[in-house]
Design a protein around this nucleic acid. Structure first.
Lengths: 147, 147
DNA sequence: TAAATTAGTTGTAAATATCAACCAATTAAT
DNA sequence: ATTAATTGGTTGATATTTACAACTAATTTA
């Protein structure tokens, strides 16, 4: 009956599974810098990926979270010296979010582990199926944004 | 560079987006019974879907969470009278988890909304692409379980 | 019968989230 | 130009979820 639908429940579980694997691998490296929560790395990654410099408000919108939630994530990233708040000279209400060198390094190392896992997780799946998967995902994302 | 990989970060964001939409739609219905968290409905759904009667330990394994986390989710579901704990007569350590009529009703109504959203979210995607998507997902899940 | 295992519970602590109230800086309106 | 409104960020309060460890009670195994 629900066969034609993507199952959001199964999605959630898969995500938990993947983050469990990431956590395990990170633990094995003994690199304390990498011991960072999914939410924190997600935000760091998002800040690092944007084409333009961003302020806190931008990230709240981009991540689809309340500005206070973002603020606290930023606090935790700043405490770990992975990013820095830089006040806009022209509009002193705004904090630009800058990734530190250390932040770059940590992100890179983290992603290396993630890609390693992704390689294993995608084993046996053809490139064209991966492409289709990504195409569907992009479309779903597009459709979802309008709702 | 990271083009051949599925992006776990984007995945997370999409999931948040979908749950945001669900929450919004639920809010519009004004049905208080449906105001239930994603984790709670996820567990209710999982309990309802199993072929055999399950105990708490089973759900912890199935959901990939600590047994105490499951226990507290069960507490919250029981408080809302969506499920009931029933002690096994032969082994009094075990609690079978039974979905109440009310629980069935709430789950059904919730899923109706989810399916409605899924219809909109899958618009413009061919059935064969959806099928491929699900195939990939199943394979990913399978691969992930071994790690 | 004693020891080990199993299922569930409780305490504690951390992380995340939202909402509302608030301040300070900036912009718009009268 | 002064007041009013808006904007970006912060704080406080509260709720949910999670894991880990220590524990109890019931059942099995030795």
């Amino acid at each position: 009956m629900e066969d034609k639908y993507l199952s959001i429940m199964q999605f959630s579980k898969l995500m938990r599974e993947v983050f469990r694997i990431i956590k395990k691998r990170i633990g094995e490296t003994n690199e304390d810098d990498l011991k960072i929560t999914p939410e924190q790395i997600g935000l760091l990654h998002a800040i690092s990926m944007t084409d333009e410099d961003v302020i806190q408000k931008d990230m709240a919108e981009l991540m689809g979270k309340d500005k206070s939630a973002i603020l606290r994530l930023i606090d935790s990233l700043e405490e770990k010296e992975l990013i820095r708040r830089v006040v806009d000279k022209n509009d002193r209400r705004k904090n630009y979010l800058m990734v530190t060198k250390h932040g770059d390094r940590v992100l890179k190392n983290y992603l290396a582990i993630v890609y390693e896992i992704m390689d294993e997780i995608q084993e046996g799946i053809s490139e064209s199926d991966i492409a289709t998967f990504k195409k569907v995902l992009a479309r779903v994302k597009h459709n979802a944004e309008k709702l």
